[in-house]
């Protein structure tokens, strides 16, 4: 099946997801903390070049699921297949990152004392090679590498419109800008899969619009697959191609935004059931 234009492929995806090989398959994930079942039997597919939202009430296990994907939590059950062959649940976080999985955090986890530039350059870490000796000598290979990757980082800076703060220490920036820098750090990794944990939390509507615009631009420009956790239903329904709904650690809905909106279990979870 050959598709030339991206839009037709994407619309095809949303109507007939089985036609394309998923980039990530979450299969029957079970995660316990002692007696608490954070996730049980969660499974869904993420398709290439789509925006997959994960929604659910507080404590539903959304962030836990993201942590399983990026290797920070080790689920007791199930597997997460990336690119059809790598089981992310068996890998360490830095190995997952090397496969091309980047993420941002709900509470900003930037390197506060470093400049914006250095934070973004750290995003290039997996693509750089220089070690202790070449780094210590610097002039020569390491400098060439620095310049080459600085060029890439500057591209990300242009994309996110943060030129004016490149040399500022991140800790001194406003909340909204920090969120943007964190997105930038993830983008600098040139990932295949981008996990965004509430990128719009705590923002005003203008900042939310900016962020939504960045996410859409990036998804299109870099041909990215995005997994997005977000509480703002307006944003979720607008920008995502597919939505997975978690409630008390269980998957209660998975489909296009319209399907999910009509799903009775989802409505019950959000609005409560009539007794």
């Amino acid at each position: 099946m050959m598709q030339t234009s991206q839009t037709s492929e994407q619309s095809n995806l949303t109507t007939n997801p089985k036609a394309v090989m998923p980039i990530m398959q979450v299969q029957d994930i079970g995660l316990r903390f002692g007696g608490v079942h954070a996730l049980s039997g969660v499974g869904f597919n993420v398709y290439p070049r789509t925006i997959q939202a994960i929604i659910g009430p507080n404590g539903a296990g959304k962030t836990s699921l993201l942590n399983c994907i990026s290797g920070l939590y080790k689920p007791q059950k199930g597997q997460i297949l990336f690119d059809g062959k790598y089981d992310l649940t068996k890998m360490k976080p830095h190995e997952v990152a090397k496969l091309g999985v980047a993420r941002s955090f709900q509470n900003i986890e930037l390197f506060r004392h470093m400049s914006v530039l250095d934070n973004l350059m750290l995003g290039r870490h997996i693509h750089m090679k220089s070690g202790v000796i070449s780094g210590g000598i610097y002039w020569g290979a390491a400098q060439k590498e620095e310049i080459q990757h600085r060029d890439y980082v500057e591209h990300v800076i242009d994309l996110l419109e943060i030129q004016h703060i490149r040399k500022m220490p991140v800790g001194a920036l406003a909340y909204g800008l920090q969120k943007r820098v964190e997105l930038g750090r993830a983008l600098a990794m040139a990932p295949k899969l981008l996990l965004l944990d509430e990128p719009m939390a705590g923002m005003n509507s203008e900042e939310k619009e900016d962020m939504a615009r960045f996410v859409l631009d990036i998804a299109e420009e870099q041909q990215l697959t995005i997994v997005l956790i977000e509480h703002d239903m307006g944003v979720v329904m607008d920008i995502s191609d597919r939505v997975a709904v978690l409630d008390f650690g269980k998957l209660i809905g998975d489909g296009t935004p319209d399907e999910v909106k009509r799903n009775q279990a989802v409505i019950d979870a959000y609005l409560g059931k009539e007794h």
Binding site: S70, G71, L72, K92, P93, H94, V96, A97, K98, A102, R103, F105, E109, L110, F111, R112, H113, M114, D118, M121, L122, G123, H125, I126, M128, K129, S130, G131, V132, S134, G135, G136, I137, Y138, W139, A142, E145, E146, R185, A186, M189
Partner: peptide
């Protein structure tokens, strides 16, 4: 030179936020 190149940045990343450092591939 070390602290302004790749390894040195990884040092500071580990100091400032070791979880984030892992997730970006350090």
């Amino acid at each position: 030179n070390l602290v302004r190149s790749r390894v040195g940045r990884a040092f500071v990343a580990v100091r400032d936020q070791d979880i984030a450092a892992q997730v970006i591939g350090v």
